[in-house]
Design a binder for these strands. Structure first.
Lengths: 123, 123
DNA sequence: CGTTATCATTTACGCGTGTAAACATCATTT
DNA sequence: AAATGATGTTTACACGCGTAAATGATAACG
């Protein structure tokens, strides 16, 4: 089963650094999200059930570690959007942002560099 | 309120051509999706409530027209993903697909052209 | 006109989600 | 040992979603 948006917020904490205790996760995410302790615990349990994180006992508490890799999650999500909205092709997506004037100078510079590199490794 | 994935399938039909009757929508989407008539009707009603489509009576039936523009929907969805996963920047997204070897030759060619055009209009 | 066919609207139902309150467990402090 | 505090687990509940059955309204037909 897919991992939800609220769950992904918790995963994000673990992707930045792991293992972590529930308390640490709450500290990092509670204020910004306006979540109580119970909320974070629930999300962690759902993530456990979904095998997206692993919990290892450490005295009276647990240390949580991500099992699902961020790269994997990002890939799924990105491919989903690309397929649904852009026929599975990257160029139209970029064209969309370009038309929307959402390409920063930095973006453009980085894209140039990226294409250049692809060129080079071409032989 | 956001429009769901099943609702987006219906919108897609209307974005391709509108106005359309419920029957036409069902014909176009039912087989592929495995949906019954009632399902499509429900989705249309939810879209009406969300003001994403407009219905105009035509004799005994209704003609449905999109109110939400595809461009708008695509923008919201794309920006959402970009913000959640790539810090709101396009280049990292493209880099991700590049690393994943998901850039086709065609994509690369189109991206080149796009950058060239941006260059030109920069004058 | 009453019946049937054709649409649309309402209601339903199980499931996941967001959000927590309640409850259970166990170590620590009186 | 009983009370307290710290953690984790279970249960709850409203709401949206996917999916459709049930019901309502109305035009067409006999």
């Amino acid at each position: 089963m897919a991992i939800s948006e609220a769950e992904a917020v918790v995963m994000d904490v673990l992707w930045r650094e792991a293992p972590r205790t529930a308390e640490e996760i709450l500290a990092e995410v509670g204020p910004a999200q306006g979540w109580q302790e119970g909320t974070v615990k629930s999300l962690l349990n759902r993530l456990l059930r979904k095998k997206a994180v692993h919990a290892e006992r450490d005295g009276r508490r647990y240390l949580y570690t991500p099992l699902l890799a961020r790269e994997q999650y990002v890939s799924q999500e990105s491919k989903g959007l690309l397929d649904r909205l852009f026929g599975g092709r990257v160029a139209p997506l970029v064209a969309h942002f370009s038309e929307q004037r959402k390409l920063s100078k930095k973006d453009i510079a980085e894209l140039r560099k990226l294409l250049k590199e692809l060129d080079d490794e071409q032989h």
